[in-house]
Design a protein around this nucleic acid. Structure first.
Length: 584
DNA sequence: GTGCAGACTTAGAAGCTGGACG
DNA sequence: CGTCCAGCTTCTAAGTCTGCAC
């Protein structure tokens, strides 16, 4: 018996033949519909607020004060974050206090006027104790919770879309709390409201069994829009944007889209030379807007910058992408460290991650940049005649489906392919090949500027690893010594004659330890090189998985070595279809 | 063109867990 | 058998891009 591998329906089949036509080859809709049938159970709401036990006290100006449940709940959000840097930031505190006051009753409002006089430490201690208690639970208790989670997952975590039972990505509604923006976000600390059934729009097919709202409540709306893929939506109160519940990356609908994305990038591969020639030409255009477009496109292509949409000032952190670069974000050096025409980039990109890079550029680009910056203030737009919509309209004319982000996908994937070719050598063993893979992955992560905060435990874990390596070295020299003495003892290990069993054993031991040592050393190198670089984002979003699958097949590397279970599920389509000669 | 809503992808951090290790 | 931490999972913010109204 074979269980269905194309979704989570659990149907058992007698033969595997059924998958000769895999789900990736099922017929696709041509009219813009995303599905014909959609049935699900709706979202899981955040658990209701549980008031604190009466012995956990809040103090204002040193004096105990009993808070109303509404005010108390918001206070606990702050208390839970007390150890976080956020709560020391002025904007966070100001926003929090303003929103907290809105939840207070008249009496509280009159009394609580200064956040500095609020003492949340007992609350904070209480939550810490709770989390300790959770950790200290018995196996049985933990198992119970696990089973309950599993039950919830089985009931709410799946939907039926067309003929498949699909996993839902985020079936739980975001619980209320304090907004944590990234970087210098002007709204950090604001209260994220609790979402109620009357905020929720349900999307499902007419002929499905509609999800029921909790007893005594109503949905905002139930609609049947098969031109979109979401199951549930609501409007969030911080930015007023819409949030969605959608399917897991393993689903047909996400997988097909992902596949399509890489196919678009492969089409770019076929015409990228032509496009490059054209923008080189356009640097000479007599129209300023065309020159700006051409220089911006050059950056997007060469440096894998994001498009850079305009953002509403004061609503979000001040971050930029290519089209929204300002004069203050670049510096020009006619000559720098022996190189000519160097541009220094220094700006905050998505998630307020700093992009810093010094790159030599063509003379024409350099001269154009000088021209664009003439008579401008530091906070003026570098490309004042350009925005993402103009740029994307132009790209659309160059190739069907071409937008700025396709360049990132294309350059990431082509870099991986080329790096793998360059770095993999046939005579290396498995750990070394995997190191090569990670290095190729790393080259892409650096190109895309995927950074992470160095893990808090980095230094320590590096030290631990070094200790292990030292121990392994000692072990190796011991093993070698033993081998030597074994040889001396038996004397005869003549050519052509089998060694004594003792010697064979010793030799095997040495070999095994050498391999273990090698593995540890490789691990140390890998980790050191990875200190501030995040590989996950590029692996998940930019690298055509078929390149990796082909590489694995070519070198006989089990795909599990580079993709964990979740990743294999997401990339099932690629694992299904790529053979070792796949070329991006 | 511009502004905005909407839908969807991309992103790093936080939280959790299971397997290695003493 | 308990501890610890790396790797995985979850979370949700922050982008991109399209389409529509004016």
């Amino acid at each position: 018996m074979y269980e269905c591998i194309t979704c989570y329906c659990g149907i058992k089949y007698i033969t595997q033949m059924i998958w000769l036509i895999s789900r990736w080859e099922e017929e696709r809709y041509t009219d813009g519909s995303k599905w014909k049938f959609l049935e699900h159970k709706g979202p899981v709401f955040a658990p209701p607020y549980e008031p604190l036990p009466s012995n956990v006290k809040f103090y204002y100006d040193g004096k105990h004060m009993k808070l109303s449940p509404e005010a108390e709940e918001v206070a606990t959000f702050f208390a839970k974050m007390l150890d976080h840097e956020y709560t020391t930031k002025d904007i966070f505190r100001k926003n929090f206090f303003k929103d907290w006051r809105k939840e207070m009753n008249a009496e509280e409002k009159a009394k609580l006027t200064d956040l500095k006089k609020c003492n949340f430490t007992e609350m904070s201690e209480y939550f810490k104790a709770q989390s300790e208690a959770r950790k200290a639970m018995t196996k049985d208790e933990k198992l119970k919770i696990k089973e309950e989670n599993e039950r919830l997952l089985q009931e709410y975590g799946f939907c039926i879309m067309d003929n498949h039972r699909e996993r839902i990505a985020n079936f739980r509604i975001e619980p209320p709390g304090l907004f944590r923006g990234r970087g210098d976000h002007p709204k950090m600390g604001m209260l994220k409201r609790r979402i109620r059934p009357k905020d929720i729009i349900i999307n499902c097919s007419k002929d499905s069994k509609h999800p029921e709202p909790p007893p005594g409540t109503k949905w905002k709306e139930v609609r049947h829009d098969n031109k979109v893929t979401w199951l549930v939506s609501w409007t969030e109160n911080i930015q007023g944007s819409i949030k969605y519940i959608m399917l897991n990356p393993s689903s047909r609908i996400k997988g097909e889209k992902d596949w399509q994305k890489y196919e678009t990038a492969r089409r770019l591969k076929k015409c990228v030379d032509r496009i490059r020639t054209q923008y080189h030409e356009d640097w000479k255009s007599k129209e300023m807007r065309i020159r700006q477009r051409a220089v911006a496109l050059y950056f997007i292509d060469k440096l894998a910058l994001r498009a850079g949409n305009e953002k509403e000032e004061g609503e979000t952190a001040d971050t930029v992408g290519c089209c929204s670069l300002r004069v203050e974000h670049i510096k020009l050096y006619p000559e720098n460290d022996g190189q000519e025409y160097v541009v220094e980039f220094d700006f905050l990109g998505k998630d307020s991650i700093r992009y810093y890079n010094k790159v030599p550029v063509e003379k024409r680009v350099f001269k154009n940049l000088q021209l664009f910056m003439e008579n401008k203030e530091p906070d003026d737009d570098l490309f004042d005649r350009l925005n993402t919509s103009v740029l994307n309209k132009h790209l659309q004319e160059l190739m069907d489906g071409l937008t700025a982000k396709v360049f990132r996908t294309y350059n990431a994937s082509i870099t991986l392919q080329q790096q793998l070719k360059q770095l993999t050598s046939a005579d290396e063993n498995l750990p070394a090949k995997i190191l090569s893979y990670n290095r190729a992955n790393r080259a892409v992560a650096i190109l895309c500027n995927h950074q992470r905060a160095p893990p808090k435990t980095f230094e320590k874990s590096m030290q631990n690893l070094q200790t292990k390596i030292d121990a392994k070295r000692d072990q190796l020299s011991d093993a070698k010594r033993e081998l030597k003495s074994a040889k001396a003892d038996t004397k005869c290990c003549l050519p052509g004659q089998p060694c004594s069993p003792v010697i064979t054993l010793c030799k095997k031991a040495v070999q095994r330890i050498e391999e273990q040592l090698m593995k540890l050393e490789v691990q140390a190198t890998d980790r050191e090189e990875n200190k501030q670089i995040a590989l996950g984002t590029s692996k998940l979003n930019y690298l055509d998985p078929r390149i990796s699958v082909a590489w694995c097949k070519k070198w006989g590397i089990p795909v599990e070595k580079i993709y964990n279970k979740t990743q294999r599920e997401k990339f099932a389509w690629a694992i299904d279809m790529a053979d070792e000669d796949f070329e991006f």
